[in-house]
């Protein structure tokens, strides 16, 4: 096995998932597969941060309902978001009352959570584990950029933080459910990109490294997969990743089949610039449309690669570069 590649012989399964989107996400091409679309961006709560937590809570509850499981039956909760100190996740955990590990991999948190859940399941420590991530546009914009109502011109490479939450319920190996067969933990890769309005370029090398390492470690090639989908490289980042993979010696026709959730999320709507981003982007798409595709046997083997830019407003102002990561899970359906 290569560095950071994990194989799960007991085949932990994703038995259910819950995905909630905000009002603007009704425009998403994936919206039909979401379980719930809110009419209010703050989920009828007083503050953006409370709405953020509420949305994540609803996603978790939907996942539990689908599997017909109570909170007390869940052994672990793996959750993360982009707000300072991940308070929405912390409040979510206190409401659910499930033993909780807060994880921060920026927009790659959905998959880092799924990897930890799969490991705990593999170990036998967990019968049921919830893993996922969320982001709420307003609270993330104020955290990383400007006040929501501030008029600043964003370049065409900028991305729109989605309001969405996606949580998956991971259980011991079961028939008739997609299984997490293997995973690759991302390195933190820093190729000295500094533009916070051009995250696609910062994150593409991390996705390239993780995909290359996963394929090498598993002895596979791109054509072994029905679908390889990245998290939120968006319309500018995806072609950069494809170019990087071609330079790594992969076949062009396979590389061009790679899809990106952020690039597709809002369709061709120009108001969203390069496309979607945010922890909720990969979480909502992977745990709705992609899982559905697996369950319906549209795909037999999927590599879901969530990408994350590990910057903070402080490091940006101090002119530091943007290290990025990408975590991948290999999901298969028999």
């Amino acid at each position: 096995m290569d560095q950071g590649v994990i194989y799960f012989p007991s085949k932990p399964s994703i038995i259910a998932s819950g995905v909630v989107g905000g009002p603007l996400e009704k425009k998403s091409v994936f919206a039909a597969d979401f379980d719930l679309l809110l009419d209010d961006e703050r989920a009828e709560e007083k503050s953006n941060e409370k709405g953020h937590k509420q949305m994540a809570l609803q996603a978790c509850q939907i996942a539990l309902e689908k599997a017909n499981i109570k909170e007390r039956d869940v052994d672990f909760l793996m959750s993360g978001d982009l707000v300072n100190q991940m308070t929405p996740s912390n409040f979510l955990a206190s409401t659910l009352g499930i033993p909780y590990l807060g994880l921060y991999s920026a927009c790659a948190t959905s998959i880092s959570g799924a990897i930890v859940a799969a490991l705990l399941t593999e170990l036998g420590a967990s019968k049921y584990a919830l893993a996922g991530a969320a982001s709420q546009h307003n609270s993330i914009e104020r955290q990383f950029r400007y006040p929501v109502e501030y008029g600043g011109q964003k370049p065409g490479t900028a991305q729109w933080t989605v309001t969405a939450a996606g949580y998956a319920l991971i259980a011991k190996g079961q028939m008739n459910s997609p299984v997490i067969e293997a995973a690759t933990v991302g390195k933190s890769i820093d190729l000295q990109q500094t533009d916070p309005f051009h995250m696609g370029a910062a994150m593409a090398p991390a996705a390239c490294d993780t995909i290359t390492r996963h394929l090498k470690g598993r002895g596979q090639s791109l054509s072994d997969y029905d679908l390889i989908i990245t998290g939120d490289l968006a319309k500018v980042g995806l072609p950069i990743l494809q170019e990087c993979l071609i330079k790594e010696g992969m076949a062009q026709q396979d590389v061009m089949k790679i899809r990106d959730a952020g690039a597709e999320f809002y369709g061709d709507d120009q108001t969203f610039l390069a496309g979607a981003s945010g922890a909720g982007c990969s979480a909502s798409v992977f745990f709705s449309t992609i899982l559905k595709g697996l369950n319906e046997k549209k795909y037999e083997r999927v590599l879901a690669v969530a990408t994350g830019a590990l910057l903070s407003p402080l490091t940006v102002q101090q002119n530091e570069s943007i290290p990025c990561t990408a975590h991948a899970i290999e999901i298969s359906m028999k």
Binding site: Q153, G156, L191, Q193, A201, P205, V236, I240
Partner: peptide
Amino acid sequence: MDAKQYDTLQQSLSPKPSIIKNC
């Protein structure tokens, strides 16, 4: 690929802002 090579690659694939249009 080192940082410099990557930056060249990245810039060749990224759209440039149209300064005249913006002005």
